[in-house]
Amino acid sequence: RPAQGRTYGNLGNTQYLLSNFCNAVDSHKMRLLIAKEFGDLAAERRAYCNLGNAYIFLGEFEKAAEHYKRALQLARHLRDRAVEAQACYSLGNTYTLLQDYERAIDYHLKHLIIAQDLGDKVGEGRACWSLGNAHTALGNHDQAMHFAERHLEISNETGDRC
């Protein structure tokens, strides 16, 4: 049974990389079910994250957000800060797709704080870029400017010409 779980996970990932997102969801749901049977929280967290990603490409953003939230709860429970940051970043982008910019800002700020704690310059730059855009969408131009300037500083530091 544990091997079946791992195989469903691998199958889901392969279907996802082939852009067969409905099949990917079916496989990752099976992976999640088996992870729950064994109380395998790390596998459960991976399945929620993989499901969230697949729902994004199916255009089901609300469902994606629900799955990313479960992944975030588990990342916190497992005390994995890098994975917690990734879940916050995913939620920030998902709420931007849903045009809920206040929630997007909440999650991008959470991502920013963790990226700073971990010394992750690429993550910090992405967070500032995202925050600048969300504040622009809300008409908070002073805040947008602040984050755009910080994004520029970090891009110069990391040599990111793009």
């Binding site: 970043y89 992405r126 995202s130 969300a134 969408a137």
Partner: peptide, 26 residues
């Protein structure tokens, strides 16, 4: 889409480009 919408999407688009190749490996 408005200009603002286009601006708003560019950081999300970049995320989605990365996401397409990102899987949580067993």
């Amino acid at each position: 889409p408005t200009r603002m919408h286009v601006i708003q999407v560019d950081s999300v688009q970049r995320w989605m480009e990365d996401l397409r190749h990102m899987t949580e490996v067993e």
